[in-house]
């Protein structure tokens, strides 16, 4: 039983990472109706920025963490302005191909930067190898890395909730994603809002990367985890913010359990099995929107 709880706990932590990347997918999808396949690579860039902040610039970990998020916020906004806005009005396929291209480019360019390169790096964190045991020495043991992932994700969710529910700009982001034309009529600066959404999405992905770094490593291909975050977004019902997180948690937990109880190899395909089951049972996903636009 304890074993099981232990697995659930680490599954939740893993799921938070998937959930955050899925959140990045969903935000951009909702705002611009395109899918950013470079989401995982934005996460990787976040990891590298954190690495540079701590090692090269000698910042304390949490300062580097914050700096990396801000840097990625601006990077995401610049990406939208420079690469995606000129494609406005092009078919969705064009944009999808461009985001895949951005991903390749990011992975390639990162290996050319000295100090980053093709190596795997360890991001030094102050809470490395700390553990917290609940219920005495033979109770549930949680690693500090997992606790930090869960706590930071929870904080981020609260922050996003406040943003979307209680600030003008947050409500305007939702308004723009629901009815772009009406947003124009209201005088909402739609293009600037889309830019902000890209920035936000990049920052959230970077946050996932920085949280994940202590568990895995920082390297050019760490963004491939995005391939598992995508199923998370689908399970949650593409286009739903709470859905992305719940989807992430489901995939994380199922994957961890499959890795322990099922024969070798099942861990890697667990996410896709969950998606197939979901698509068969509830094609709209858990939180899929059924509300159609009234004419």
């Amino acid at each position: 039983m304890l074993q099981f709880l232990q697995l659930i706990a680490s599954g939740i932590a893993q799921g938070c990472i998937y959930g955050l990347i899925a959140l990045g997918f969903v935000l951009i999808y909702k705002a611009t109706e395109t899918i950013n396949f470079a989401q995982g690579d934005l996460m990787m860039l976040g990891g590298f920025l954190g690495l540079t902040g701590t090692l090269a610039l000698g910042l304390p970990f949490w300062a580097a963490f914050a700096a990396a998020l801000v840097a990625m916020l601006f990077f995401g906004m610049a990406l939208e302005r420079a690469v995606l806005r000129p494609l406005l009005g092009q078919p969705a396929f064009t944009v999808v191909m461009v985001t895949i291209g951005i991903g390749y480019l990011a992975r390639g360019l990162v290996t050319m930067i000295p100090e980053w390169g093709t190596d795997t790096h360890v991001l030094p964190v102050p809470y490395k190898d700390d553990i917290v045991s609940i219920g005495g020495t033979d109770g549930l043991i949680l690693s500090m890395e997992h606790i930090v992932i869960i706590a930071v994700t929870a904080l981020l969710i609260v922050g996003l909730y406040l943003l979307f529910k209680h600030t003008k700009i947050g409500i305007a982001m939702q308004a723009t994603s629901q009815n772009q034309l009406a947003a124009f009529y209201m005088g909402i600066p739609v293009r600037r809002i889309n830019m902000l959404v890209w920035g936000l999405s990049a920052a959230i992905s970077a946050c996932a990367g920085l949280l994940l770094a202590p568990i895995t490593f920082v390297h050019a291909n760490m963004g491939f985890i995005g391939l598992k975050a995508f199923p998370a977004a689908v399970v949650g019902g593409f286009g739903s913010i709470p859905g992305a997180l719940v989807g992430g948690l489901i995939i994380g937990v199922v994957e961890t359990l499959a890795g322990f109880y099922l024969p070798e190899g099942f861990k890697d395909i667990a996410a896709y099995i969950v998606v197939l089951v979901m698509l068969a049972v509830k094609p709209n996903g858990l939180f899929g929107e059924n509300l159609r636009k009234k004419v």
Binding site: K168, A175, K294
Partner: peptide, 25 residues
């Protein structure tokens, strides 16, 4: 201010939030 054809409201925002968006500028 423009009241578009076919209302063009924001369907998932609440009525109040829709009104707040009217005051966006």
């Amino acid at each position: 201010a423009h009241v578009p054809e076919g209302r063009e409201i924001f369907p998932l925002l609440t009525v109040r939030e829709n009104l707040l968006m009217g005051a966006y500028t």
